[in-house]
Structures are given as C-alpha cells and as structure tokens.
Design a protein around this nucleic acid. Structure first.
Lengths: 204, 204, 204, 204
DNA sequence: AATGAATGAGCCTTCATTCAT
DNA sequence: GATGAATGAAGGCTCATTCAT
C-alpha cells in the first residue's frame, strides 16, 4: 500500500496525502471518504491538501494515473529482460499478478474507479499511458506474430484474452469472493494465456 | 435498455422508475444522479419513489439484482437446449455477449456498480443468484470434466478463464474505448474459451 | 421594513424569508449575513430557503427588484392623480422621499447593492422595471416639455437633475451622516427640482 | 487609472499593489477579488502584500482615502484660483466631473465601496478629509451667502444640491447605463447647480 | 524586504429522506 | 397510491491570514 517513490511527486507532503487518501478510499470507498478524514489520516490541513491537489477528484486522478504508471513501468522493465514469444506472454501475465499482489489496496482502488469523472488533465495522462503501454507490448510481440509463433488476432483482443482472466480473478479475490490468492494462480493464468495466443511451430 | 418484464415488479410505476433510474445512472453516474432527476425522467413524485423503494440504494440494488437475474436466466434457458462440452462452453460465452449487446446501459451499470454498498436484502439475493448460477453451470459441465473433455482446473478459475476476456472487452467497448462491437468478436472469444478449457479426446 | 404585500410572492414562507433576509442584510451587510442567520431569523430551514430561492444571490435579487417595483409603483399611482408640470415634478420628488422614509432598511439595502452580481433573470427584470418607469415619466412630462413649461434637456439628465440631490441626501441620512430627516427636506428638494427644470411661462 | 504619486506611499511596491488591487476590484468586485489575484496582477508575494498592508480591508481603506484625498486636493487647488460665487460653484462641479473622467476605475470603486467595514484608522482619516473639505468650501462660499449671491439653505443641503446630479449621472455612466460621457454634460450640470443655489443680485 | 507553504474556520449548497395532506 | 413542501445533516471548497525561512 506504499505509494511508490517514483510516483506523483518527490515532495513529502503530497505523497503522504496520497497514501492517506488511498487508505481511506480503500477502507470506506471514495465517495464516503471526506476531505476531513484525509486530513486526519495524513496530518495535513484542508488548505494544504488543496494547495497540492485541485480537488478531491484531483487526488483520485493522481492515484489512478500513478498506479497505472507504476504497474506499466514494472511490466516494461520485466519485458526488457525477456525474450521469446512464450516468455513474453508469461512475463506480462505474471507481472500483472505480482503488481496486484503487492499493491492490493491500490489495485482495488483502480478496479473500483471509473474513468468517467476524471479531469481533462488526468484523462489525457491516462491516454498517453495506455498508448505507451500498447506500443511497448506491440513492439515486443509483432515479430513473433509475423513469425507465426503467436496467433494473428484482432489487435484489440490480445489484452482481453491474455489478461482478462487475471483481472476477473483479481477482482473477485480482492473483494474477498475467492479464497485462494491470485499469486497461487500464476501458473493457471499464464498457461491459459499461452494456450490462447501461442502457436507451436511445426518444424518442417 | 428496456427493463425486462420478468423483472422486479409487474406494476407499471416501479418499472418506469427503474427504467428512468437506469437511464440517469448511465448518463451521469449513480452518485451523480439525484432522486429529483429520477422524478423528472420517470414522471413519478418523490413520495411515489419512496413508496416503492426504500431508498436510493434500494433502486440500485433492484437494478443490479434484476440485471444479473435476467442475464443468468437467459443463459439457463440456452444451456437447457445445449448439449456437449464445446457447445456448452460456447453457449455460455455467446449468451453473455448477446445479453450485454442487447442491454448495454444495464451492463455498463452493472460493471460500474460495486456490491459494497448494497442492502443486506439485496446482498443476499445476489448471493443466491450467484450460487444458483454456479450450481447450474456445474451440473452441466461436471460430467464433461469427469470425462476429460474439459480440463480439470480449480473450480474458481473456470469463470475467469471462460468469461474474463469477454468482460474485459465488454468493459472497453461499453466505455467507447474500442471500435469493433462485442458481437463481432463472438467467435474470437468462444474459440478462445474452448481453446483454454477444452480437451480434445484422443480416441483410442 | 415590512415587505410589501404586493411583492415577490403571495405565499407566507417566501415573504418571511425575504423580510428576515432584509433585516439581516441591513444589520450586518449582505456578505456578512450567512444563510444560517436567515434561517434563524425567518424560522425556515436551509432547504426551505433553497426551495424558494435558487441561491443567496437570488434573495438579493428578489429584494432589489421588489423594492424598486414597490417604489416605482407608488410613484405611478401618485402621478396618476397629479396634473401640471410643477405638480408632476414635485410629486416625483416627494414620492421618492416618502418611500425612502417609510422603507429605510430597504432603501439602504438598495443603495448598497450593486447590480453587478445579479442573475440574468433579475437583471432582466430590473431592465424592464427601469424602462417602464422611464416611459411612464416621459408620457407625463413630454407634453409639458413641448409646451415649454419644462426645460428641454438631454433625456438622460432629467432623473439625475431632479432626483440626484434626494439620493445624495438620502444616502447620507440613511448612513447617519446627517441629522435632519429626509422628510424635513421635502420642500428644499422639490423647490430645487422645479427651479432646475421648470420654466415659468411669460404670458404674452 | 494610475494611482497618483501623491498617494499613500512613495515606494514602488505598495503603489503597484494598490494599482493592481484597484484593477482587480474594478473588474471583479472587492469581495470577489482574492489576495491571490492581487499577487498575480502585482507580482508581489502574499507576504509582501501583508508587509505593507495590514489586511485586505487595509488595501480597500487606503484606496478609498487616497482617492478622496486626490479628488479633494484637486478641487482645493482649482478653488484657490477661482473667484466669485458663480465661478466657485461651477469650479466645484467641473472639478468633480474632471476627476471622475480621469479616474474612472477609481471613481467606480469609491461609489461601490461602503464605508461600513473600514478600519478605525481609515474611518478617522476619512472624517478628517471630509471635515477639511467642508471647511474649505465653507470658507470660500460663506461671504457670498452673506452677500445674498448664494441662497441661504441648510448647510447639509448644499453638497447634495450642487453635486447630487453629477454623482447620479456619474454612477450611471460608469456602470455603462448611459451613452453620453459625463464630460459632455459639464455645462448641463454646472448650469443647473448655479440655477439651484445662485441668486442674481438686483442692483438697485 | 520578500517568499509561499501551511493553516483552519466557516460558508454555501446539495440531496436523501420524511410526512402531512 | 400519490404528492411535493419541508427538513437538516454533511461536505467540498475558499481564502484571509500567519510564519518559518
């Protein structure tokens, strides 16, 4: 639940505000959390919070963007060290599982937060983040698709096919609806991902 | 976006209230929608709304439970007419896709609505619904699992593996983040589902 | 300080709210008056106030428009009974003096309230009121101007010339800056008004 | 709109703060203007503003007192060069018109600003200013009143009678409610002033 | 003289809910 | 079953002011 040090700001105050906000949001829900509670938990005054964030929505947006960035960044680093089609697919699945496992409250928050009410600023940041992620993944896998090691499918289906099961299980697990931890399902979901998009090469 | 006639109540007023509420929730979000707006859109008075529903949360709960029931019910009917492992898996995937396609606002609402703030009454209804669905699906597939036509996997992984990709794609599509309609992806997702859990029998 | 019965609304609640608001505004100033204080003084609840008035500014606007209407209406009635150039001028001056004298708090409020922050709705009402007043006065005096009984001056100078001194004295008196009451200056100001715009006819 | 160099302070910073404040007050209103906005416009920091002025009210007071002093001072200088009853009356009217014309934003600010919320310090300054002005005018006109060249009227009626029409017209003009500029009405208002208080001497 | 982060009291407004008719 | 005026608790946000540097 610690807000990554690469996040939002290097200043102490804003970081502690975000951490407190995340804790509150996770315990009581975003709408149910009052600014006053974030004050109490973070030790910052109302004014101080508004000095760093334009509004409550601004906190939500920062938390959302930071979380996705942190998550994507981790995947990027792991993918940099990976090679091969199957290894890549498994890396993506496992990286997501690891991030969620290590950032449960953050993940719960992200799953629960719609992008509908975001500021233009954060909406734009989100778009850029998603684009960058998509480009990175594409750069890695395109050669393998061309080589026939990965099934040729509509571009917008890969993510749902590979990560959809993880997201679905994660939502349930984080909600408490499932006993076995997400981490213990690592093999099931990375096997499945490869089974769906992988194609074993028949050597001529 | 019509509230199914098998839903909640056979009376006209409550149905029109639910329909208006769903429309509002979908356009502005649940929290952003005020009772006054539901009054305006439904033509009912404040008092009338409170006559049929205990609270705003009651409307949300009814809409959620009704939607899931409607969705499950459709799957149940289709599964009754199906036979075989692969056919069953495809039926489940396609039924979900069809329901979402025909009830986009409703689906968007369900995806966006957390179960956290439900009334005990609705929470219980939801539990029963989910249990019944699970039992139904299990009754259908267990023989095929025993026969080795379907992979033996942890019980709580089937739903994520089979439907996770659909849910993930649906969320994006309903949000407008993807151009191609969910319906056009029917084959992709039912193929994938079968590829993940299906096991072709090597006939000896 | 009583809100005229011809004002704003015939309903009891809104009238009592306006009366309470005027009293508060007069005692502590518009900006310094809180909605809570108007609640206390009027006996209405917060919600009730917002049920009748869109905002605090809405109360200010209603009070302003009502006051001017009341004032103009009185002048209109007196002018209907008047005849002749000099009599008309004196009637206008004296009507204003009487209204201010009988509605001191209201007058103080009107003098202190700028039209800058009015709602479009109230701004429009104000415009219509002023136009109607101007037309009425013009209809009365035009014949006398044509007959040479009243000096031919730029149209927009009559009001300042005739009523300017009264307004100036009234502002001071209402502020407590002058001892002698406005009412006791009736002759001084109506004499002066006639002296400025009146022209005695030299009979040939 | 330049803050006169004889005003408040000879230092650059405070003068630029006052100028910025006046511009803000004029554009958005006193209450609507925040200290932060004055910072932005003046380039001074919050702390700097509070270094020179005790409070926001202090800025308002300084601006008010300075404006009136500047205005009175101009009249004093012109009256020093004048002689005779009629010339004196016309000088007073025209001096006011000229000042308002050359200091429109300042005049608008003064008209809009009540004296109610002033600091004791500024309230006292204002009193002294008004007293001095009154004494000066009295010193000039008393001989002419005694000589019967100016009507004998209650002392507190002269200012309203002579300047009331100008103030009334000025308020409207500054508000944009009247097309013709105040300057173009100079003759109308000085003629009228003399007509009201002047008495031609029958030499006999 | 200057800075600007930090404070925190306070206010307008919203809105789910009640209840007399 | 239906109405809608009335309630009032609660919260996001503003902004004048302070103070450590």
């Amino acid at each position: 639940m610690t807000i990554s040090s690469t996040s939002f700001s290097s200043k102490r105050r804003p970081r502690s505000i975000l951490a407190a906000a995340l804790a509150c949001f996770d315990q009581t829900g975003v709408d149910e959390t009052t600014i006053a509670e974030i004050c109490r938990k973070s030790g910052a005054s109302t004014g101080s919070i508004y000095h760093f964030f334009d509004s409550k929505q601004g906190i939500v947006g920062a938390l959302l963007v930071d979380g996705l960035r942190d998550n994507y960044e981790q995947t990027r680093q792991r993918l940099n060290k990976a090679s091969g089609a199957q290894n890549g697919v498994r890396t993506i699945v496992e990286s997501l599982i690891d991030w969620i496992t290590r950032n449960r409250a953050w993940a719960r928050f992200i799953y629960a937060t719609g992008t509908g009410s975001l500021t233009a600023k954060h909406r734009e940041a989100l778009r850029q983040l998603n684009d960058a992620y998509f480009e990175m993944v594409k750069a890695y896998f395109q050669p393998h698709v061309d080589a026939g090691e990965i099934a040729a499918l509509p571009a917008d289906c890969y993510a749902p096919l590979i990560l959809g099961p993880v997201h679905e299980y994660a939502r349930r697990w984080l909600r408490g609806g499932v006993k076995t931890s997400l981490g213990q399902r690592k093999n099931v979901f990375s096997d499945a991902a490869w089974r769906v998009v992988g194609r074993s090469q028949t050597v001529g």
